[in-house]
Simulated scan of single mutants.
Amino acid sequence: MKKLKTNMDKWLDKQDKRWQALPIRKQHRYTLYFFAVYLLITAVVIAKILDDAGTSQKGMVIEPIENPALKKLETNKNRIDERK
């Protein structure tokens, strides 16, 4: 586990040095691109959710919760009544 942590730290330090070596203008441009892509993906996901919700033919069905134990007792009573 220590080796993994050491390797990750080395890799992250290397990436940080590469990032710091870039000119500020390029860093700013990359940051804007990544943010724009993030916003685009977010907008697509929200649009997909709204589209799925809008085209849904089924409405939400709200029913009372049935206790399975009571339901089992009722079926047992029905079986006993049928035998008589």
Rank of each mutant, 00 (worst) to 15 (best):
Y33Q: 13
Y38G: 07
L4Q: 07
D51N: 08
K2T: 14
M60L: 14
E63L: 12
A21K: 13
K72M: 07
D9A: 10
K72L: 08
K58H: 11
G59P: 04
M60N: 12
S56M: 06
A43L: 13
V61H: 03
D9C: 04
L12H: 09
R18N: 10
P68E: 05
D81G: 00
K10W: 14
T42W: 04
S56A: 07
D51V: 06
I65P: 03
H28G: 06
A53S: 10
V45M: 07
Q57W: 02
N76Y: 15
K3Q: 12
G59R: 05
T6N: 15
R25V: 15
I65V: 12
K14Q: 09
P64K: 01
M8I: 12
R83Y: 13
V44L: 11
W19G: 02
K84G: 03
A47C: 03
V37D: 01
Q57Y: 01
P64Q: 02
K26V: 05
D9F: 11
D13V: 13
A53N: 08
I80N: 08
P68M: 02
D81E: 05
K26T: 05
E66N: 01
I62V: 04
V44Y: 05
R79I: 15
K84A: 09
K3C: 02
K48D: 08
E66L: 08
A53D: 06
R79T: 13
A36Y: 07
A21C: 02
E66V: 14
A47N: 00
N7H: 06
L50D: 06
R83W: 13
V37C: 09
L39G: 12
E82A: 09
P23M: 10
L70F: 13
N67P: 03
V61Q: 02
Y38F: 15
K5P: 01
L50C: 14
A43F: 10
W19F: 10
K26M: 03
L39F: 11
K14E: 13
V61W: 00
S56F: 01
I80V: 14
A43G: 04
G54I: 01
I24H: 10
L73T: 09
F34Y: 02
R83K: 15
I49H: 02
Q27R: 11
D16K: 08
L40R: 13
D52N: 11
E74V: 15
